[in-house]
Design a protein around this nucleic acid. Sequence first.
RNA 1: GCCCGGGUGGCGAAAUUGGUAGACGCAGCGGACUUAAAAUCCGCCGGAGGGUAACCUCCGUGCCGGUUCAAGUCCGGCCCCGGGCACCA
Length: 865
Amino acid sequence: MKEIYNPAEIESAAQSYWETNNSFKVTEEPGREKYYCLSMFPYPSGKLHMGHVRNYTIGDVVTRHQRMLGKNVLQPMGWDAFGLPAEGAAIKNRMAPADWTYSNIDYMKGQLRTLGFGYDWSRELATCKPDYYKWEQWLFTELYKKDLVYRKNSIVNWDPVDQTVLANEQVIDGRGWRSGALVERREIPQWFIKITDYADELLEELDTMDEWPEQVRTMQRNWIGKSHGVRFAFPYELDGKQEQLWVYTTRVDTIMGITFCAVSAEHALALHAAKENSELAAFLEECQTGSVAEADLATMEKKGLPTGINVTHPLTGEQIPVWVGNYVLSGYGDGAVMAVPAHDERDFHFAKAYGLPITQVIQVGDESFSTDGWEEWYADKGRGTCINSGKYDGMSYSDAVDAIAADLEERELGEKRVQYRLRDWGVSRQRYWGSPIPMIHCDKCGIVPVPKADLPVVLPEDIEFDATGGSPIKKMPEWYQVSCPECGGDAERETDTFDTFMESSWYYARYTCPDADDKMLDERADYWLPVDHYIGGIEHAILHLLYARFYHKLMRDAGLITSNEPFKKLLTQGMVIAETFYRNEEDGSKSWFNPDDVTVEHDDKGRAISAKLAADGNPVEIGGIEKMSKSKNNGVDPQSMVDRFGADTVRLYTMFTSPPDQSLEWSDEGVEGASRFIRRLWNLAWNRRDAITAPGDLSNLNDQQRTARREIHTALKQASFDYERQQFNTVVSAAMKIVNTLYKLGDTPADRAILNEGLSITLRLLGPISPHVTHTLWRELGYGDEILNALWPQTDETALVQESIQYVIQVNGKVRAKIQVPADADKAAVEAIAIADDNVQKFVGDNTVRKVIVVPNKLVNIVAN
RNA sequence: GCCCGGGUGGCGAAAUUGGUAGACGCAGCGGACUUAAAAUCCGCCGGAGGGUAACCUCCGUGCCGGUUCAAGUCCGGCCCCGGGCACCA
């Protein structure tokens, strides 16, 4: 052991120790409790950012803690390796996406190693490897056979200059990111997986997933968007032909209040009417270019034009005018709605704007209805009864819905229907760097899935990108020209690749058996799954987590696994944020400076008052605290922090500064503090190394020593509780409290015994958080070989027992005294001592004591007036 | 607009879920050690007022009201900040 704490040295030694001993390699042990802890795998973008460090530290802390509880713990790591940035880098650096990706993986893996994360690297996977994507290709062909996969036309962004399809991220302000050309919408055939077949199961299971944050469950519920309603038609005649306008509504009870219909700008009826009407045609054009951001839509002005077409009310036979409305969504339901301005807020504002009639058909109690302004109760579904509705008058919501739906059904003009917002999952991407879609197009046989024996369809990695960014495999006849597996004739491969969400939807399962070479998953999957604890960013709340849940059910129904859900517990960690600094440039733009390059001046209260750029000494503006990002240049490089302070300090700081689900504000001073604490621990161990030799006798302690031991075990109890509820910041503070207590101990045999016990507890509490320094001290002080496998410390309840207890005495709810009472005193005795106190007497005065509340071992409240 | 979070010292945050508000840390101040500095160790540290002092009093958890012996915590109403989103008929 050395006098001076040297993180670089002890950390690399500890890491080598774990590597040579395969400390984190695990196998299935039937009968032993397993724990599968997983952090969302990274995209290999180049280097780790602070968000990764936080995510993976949380995962590693959970992993090491569960291991010390005696469980068989799996924590794997891998790479979400397909994706668009590799193509951009390929064009820019004139290198193959595969080479760029592999070199990034190499570098980032080294970074993960220096942070001391305990991964079972024998299970490492990269989703761009054929032995990985082979199995999702196989599953896709199986789904095709089960009729869960289909092909249909869908719209893509087309760059007319580069002659290539663009991903949404590559469209900037409606223009191609490279060419700058106006992007066109083109319809091409694409592959879909029927996630809607699983919508109900995906929705209903959310109710049972009580270890997921409520926020995430709500977001998924809304995304699936199930509603119960009625779909019905308005007949009309057009060019002498009988047609029907179909709409969907959840408020068919208001059907007698329809005063117009509204269709979306893309609706066939609108397009037809626009042929004869140039004003309408211009309006439809305008609707195409408006903002599509949801928040804008919510506050957007309601606009519309009449089509000049009338339809017939299915029950009254009345003529109803059809309008085009910018508030009608083309993609939901039939792209058309019935409008009941009296009982729908959007319809109301539209009717007011265009002078359309408003007819009240629902009455709630004695509320008074007026067309002057909108009232909340007008649209209160389920309240009130029908009026002005002929034979439906007096009916409640559910009676009216049943009766009206029955009448519509009788006329063959409608029926009840469950509607979802969720759409089928479009998985085709016209990109290169992804898994090829294993389908063959044969002129004779049609679509033929690639047989299992021919899988995987390997993506060629040794390619060159031309400047357009178009997918190279689309220009490689030697790759896509094949013979048909069925008839043997000439055929062509699908040249589109899968959406990268396909790979990230099942990687958690493949880690359980990454070497299975004849099956997607083997029997080991059921030992480890479901994942007990999944950790990642909130940005994946909907898409990734919904697709992974869907995929899990697909794999279950393919007979590969038996569980229903992939992730038992979910933790969404908070953002990492930092101060920003900028200068206003002459052209009105801002240039942002990294906090590393700025010196901040504080006033005597410690408030930041001004900041200067270190390079030129001139002032910069303080821009407020924001999420670490490239655009604000406020990212702190984890590597430079590890180099300066060591991984243990960086890990301790990220755990100590905020609870895991809240945002974490970076502060250099805070990191210094974390580093100072670790040195304080090290110095204690060094200075008292001769005293910490063996456990001593704890049975004969004086008052001071008993207090010290009580403080240690109180902190331990709190820390164990906080580990369970994953509030790691207070775990660190508990360890700090114990160290503070240990510093105050003397050097008698009893003090040495307490020190020995206290330090062994502290090291184990911190073991999961700062593993290197605790590993080293554990061995140097002779506690054992591996703290990693040490058992979690138990609270000694007898150490918590006190001879006398401090009671807080309140008079009328205000603290007036603190008294020491023997621990065995009964309620009456406590009361008596409390009332006898001088200060209590002073405040009770001449008043009569009405009531005395005694909270055992805590507090007495005397009510007097 | 709607749905989640959140609002506590100069700052990051605690408060074992209704029982001493501010633990632990950062910054700051004071002291010890040192020729000196750094490092380290010890102490003080919400505001106002009183006392030589140990201490004492009043105010204080975004704002207003309520429930309770007791509210940072529960209920009702509002104001800010952060994140997300379905104009879904």
